[in-house]
Design a protein around this nucleic acid. Structure first.
Lengths: 204, 204
DNA sequence: CAAATAATTTACCGTATGGTAAAAATATAC
DNA sequence: GTATATTTTTACCATACGGTAAATTATTTG
């Protein structure tokens, strides 16, 4: 039975999770230090450790929060429309996520680069279910000859890859174009081009 | 004037670079330790530091080697053929790179996640030139109405994103599909699907 | 084979980092 | 306002880590 969290607890735990997201995004679990996180969170290290008993707990908290947001984003799409509407909406949602949760996206990337030691199980369960569901929908479209016969799983990976790329590789993108997803015009142009290519790529 | 390197020097420096690639791929610069690299390289830490004067030198060595391979891969495409041939060949080259240089690809990803502190300059010079060149070629195709009018730079990012994804996120892909690019059938299927979607996406 | 050079090991050092104990300060409940 | 519980700070500790010095062993060169 969890004791109910005080007002200060709620505020400070959230502060730590946000600071943790920022630091883990840059340096991964091993590379991040509690001192860095504490500094960003605006509190002393022992004070931080009063809220999270060790580094791993902060990390798990950050991962959980991020994964939940991501899964929610993946679930939010409407399957009722045409393939064109559905795919457009799906890409839009993922682009929004990359723009609005850039740091979280990178924490995720770092975790997977380290071999997904913490997330592996969750990915194999929750995410697998979502992928299987999406795959079924796409296979239905193919059967009904609404889209070309492509391998669903690779289409899904393509969309994830591209949208994630704009978040994770924004340092590279910024160096090459001078822009990031924070730039409204660039954002729209990226989304439009990607949507266009994928739609033309799969629609008959 | 550099003294010429001995046989043992050449072998051991290469061993260190390979070990470094493996470790930096997983943990990034900050998260990697010299001890880990030394262990993988099969030598003691002081022995390793006889060949590279500090951690950063190993890292720079690894980055240089990887970037050179990547730039070479990007330069190797033939622009003389049709857009269809050229794009197919380009995607193929990038897929090959992801499969054959998975660890290097991840070192690169980690560096960019950390904000590309070392690579920023090089990306802004060498890579920028390549992108500008590719952009010009693609713009030519658009002008000649050989492909649809899409934003060249986002097409390039799409191809990079997808191919890189199979290297960087293979832990996730493996959890979801049970396969990696090392699996011949999976490799061909991924390449085929991606090529198909992109070609249909851009060709008129 | 001996001298010179290169490679490797052993034994360290200072700092950074994860984490703790206990006191001090602050907020909350009565 | 006082007692209680919560929060924060101060002062630490042990270990991990980056790096060095010097002695030892192996290799090359004449």
């Amino acid at each position: 039975m969890e004791k109910k969290r005080s007002r200060i607890q709620i505020i400070n735990q959230q502060k730590v999770l946000e600071a943790g997201t920022e630091i883990f995004a840059k340096y991964g679990f091993r590379g991040a230090t509690i001192d860095q996180i504490a500094e960003v969170a605006g509190m002393s290290k022992p004070n931080l450790l009063y809220y999270f008993k060790n580094k791993k707990e902060i990390y798990i908290g950050v991962l959980e929060q991020t994964l939940n947001k991501w899964l929610q984003c993946l679930m939010e799409w409407e399957v009722t429309g045409t393939p064109e509407e559905t795919i457009t909406n799906y890409i839009e949602k993922k682009f929004e996520f990359s723009r609005d949760h850039t740091a979280g996206s990178r924490v995720f990337a770092n975790e997977i680069l380290e071999g997904a030691p913490i997330l592996k199980t969750l990915l194999g369960e929750d995410l697998k279910r979502l992928v299987d569901e999406d795959t079924r929908v796409i296979k239905g479209w193919i059967k009904d000859k609404k889209i070309r016969p492509i391998d669903p799983v690779h289409l899904i990976f393509m969309i994830w890859a591209v949208t994630q790329h704009y978040a994770d590789f924004s340092a590279q993108i910024e160096t090459l174009t001078g822009k990031t997803l924070a730039d409204e015009v660039f954002y729209k142009q990226a989304k439009k081009t990607v949507t266009q290519i994928i739609l033309n790529g799969v629609l008959i």
